[in-house]
Design a protein around this nucleic acid. Sequence first.
DNA 1: TGTACATCAGTGAACGCGCGTTCACTGATGTAC
DNA 2: TGTACATCAGTGAACGCGCGTTCACTGATGTAC
Lengths: 182, 182
Amino acid sequence: VRRSREEAARTRRSAVKAASRLFRQRGIEAVGVDEVMAKLGMTAGGFYRHFLNKEALAAEACAEAFAESGLLQARSARALLRRYLSEEHRDAAAFGCPLPALTSDMARQPDAVRRAFTRGVRASAARVAQLAPGGNSLALLAGIVGALALARAVKDQELSAAILRGSRRFWMKELGRGRVRL
Amino acid sequence: VRRSREEAARTRRSAVKAASRLFRQRGIEAVGVDEVMAKLGMTAGGFYRHFLNKEALAAEACAEAFAESGLLQARSARALLRRYLSEEHRDAAAFGCPLPALTSDMARQPDAVRRAFTRGVRASAARVAQLAPGGNSLALLAGIVGALALARAVKDQELSAAILRGSRRFWMKELGRGRVRL
DNA sequence: TGTACATCAGTGAACGCGCGTTCACTGATGTAC
DNA sequence: TGTACATCAGTGAACGCGCGTTCACTGATGTAC
């Protein structure tokens, strides 16, 4: 059942995109190769025509997640905060920022995956520094990543919303004070 | 090979403590029941004399982790920041705060575990609010949790240290400004 | 206080299941002439 | 441009492994008399 080179290339790209979303939604270890391939209407066997193993897919999926990420494309610090710390972002992890979604998976991942993730952290920190120059970009980045991660982890709508709201207000005020400019 | 009631109770407590540490270090799903029992010098079969299943252990281990946690016992906001955002804490997840260690596992955990975790988040937020009244305790909590989680995830000593240092400085200054008092 | 029996903490082997990976096979695509 | 052959994307079954859980069994502890 050979396919044309173009079709094969499309299969590969689709696998990376599907994996990137599934991994963000449920974690890398919780998603099987079968499930990723099933998303493309294919069986797991063909996977190994495209990737050395699951680890290689995870590394590419990680890079892809940062490329899709809204954080790197944000126009202003205020817009970033509003969107990042929203309930929509909290409830759509599959299409959201990989930082809150994958951070705790990273400690247990092989080096290739961790390196891809680390590049994404550096790029995100640089983008935040651009949007809010003069401020403490690493503290801001850590603050919003932690807030989203906690808001997702907690089983209490009230508390979850309070975490997002509290962090949004705090960092908006910081921007207003000019210590972290927009 | 029956044991006395006291010995049995000790076994149970040891299992919870061991699990709490192993889970914080490597994540709940990455640690098997066998491994927890092996820490006590026992085999996995006996586990089910004490717990309904792994889920029940995870819920208790989670509560135990918060009970051991330095965050709830901190004396002052400054002392908390200094210890929490240290390289020692980063490198000793097994004995550290469960928030950065378990937050991303939570999304995939059964409700009983998530509830135990949520109680811990509430208690932690309350403690931070006590230590830094008038400030935005949820933003502070999210900020330090996110910083530690990122510092652990990143494969780059330099960047990891910068995340801790940057966040420590930022929040110390916030305390100094009195917007988050000590 | 001693004896007979019931209980039950822990053992070790087994079971079932899911998952990553391999492999013989198929048949359409690509290539050489 | 057409034909013959080689290549290789994808299939589907199988393998090996780890892990959660079960279970018959052991022998010390607990209890009833």
